[in-house]
């Protein structure tokens, strides 16, 4: 099981499609930096197939005014949660 990191907003890039195609059925996705714009509807819809394994970094949401705005099925994690995700998965792949 892998953890994928995505730091780009879904708008204006095909990257989310590439990441989704690269992900195995149990892999997890963590949205960080500008990637957290993808945690807000309607942009979050592109990650809907990942329900239960799609995370967004809390600090990065807050800094961008999105603390209360993310889709309810996206799981916010703090930095400790980020570290735990990297520890629980075998490897981390960063997409940018």
């Amino acid at each position: 099981m892998l953890l994928h990191l995505l730091n780009r907003s879904p708008a204006g890039s095909r990257l989310p499609e590439d990441v989704l195609r690269a992900m195995g059925p149990d892999d997890r996705l963590l949205l960080i930096e500008s990637g957290v714009y993808g945690a807000v509807s309607p942009q979050a819809d592109c990650f809907k197939t990942l329900k239960g394994r799609c995370y967004a970094l809390q600090d990065d949401l807050s800094a961008r005014g999105l603390a209360e705005r993310h889709a309810d099925w996206i799981i916010p994690v703090d930095m400790a949660g980020f570290v735990a995700l990297t520890a629980e998965t075998q490897r981390t792949v960063s997409w940018y």
């Binding site: 730091n7 960080i32 930095m79 980020f82 520890a87």
Partner: peptide, 19 residues
């Protein structure tokens, strides 16, 4: 870019957790 900030915060957090 944000990469440095993220890396420093992540580094600090992993150390806090005993890694």
């Amino acid at each position: 870019q944000a990469a440095t900030h993220s890396a420093l915060r992540f580094g600090e957090a992993l150390i806090t957790q005993g890694h």
